[in-house]
C-alpha cells in the first residue's frame, strides 16, 4: 500500500476528530476527539517515516504520545475541577470569558 492511502486515511480520521470537536458539547468527548486528531497525525508520521526510511518520524510519535499523556492528565484534571465548581461539563455553559 502506498503512502497516499495512509495519508488519506489519516486526513479522514483527523476530520472526524474536527467534526466531533465542533458538534459535541460534552467536554470529555471533545477531549476524546482531540486524541483522535493526535492519533491521525501519528499515523501520518509513521507512514512518512517508512517512506523516507528515517526513524525520526517514529521517535516523534513517541514524543507525541508522551505529551498527549501529560495533556490528558492536565485536561481531565481541569474538567474535574470545572465540574466541581459548576456541576457541568457542557462547554456552552462555561463561558466566563465572554467579552
Amino acid at each position: 500500500m502506498s503512502l497516499e492511502w495512509y495519508l488519506a486515511l489519516s486526513a479522514l480520521l483527523f476530520t472526524v476528530g474536527v467534526i466531533g470537536v465542533l458538534i459535541r458539547r460534552n467536554a470529555i468527548i471533545i477531549f476524546m476527539c482531540i486524541e483522535l486528531m493526535l492519533n491521525a497525525a501519528n499515523l501520518a508520521f509513521v507512514a512518512i517515516s517508512r517512506e523516507l526510511g528515517d526513524p525520526s518520524g517514529q521517535v516523534f510519535v513517541f514524543f507525541v504520545m508522551t505529551v498527549a499523556a501529560a495533556e490528558v492528565a492536565i485536561g481531565l484534571a481541569i474538567i474535574v475541577s470545572v465540574f466541581k465548581h459548576r456541576e457541568t461539563v457542557n462547554v456552552d455553559e462555561v463561558d466566563s470569558l465572554k467579552g
Binding site: L3, E4, A8, S10, F14, I48
Partner: peptide, 8 residues
C-alpha cells in the same frame, strides 16, 4: 486533506 495525501 485527501488532496494533500494524493499529491504527497
Amino acid at each position: 486533506g485527501v488532496y494533500i495525501a494524493v499529491n504527497a
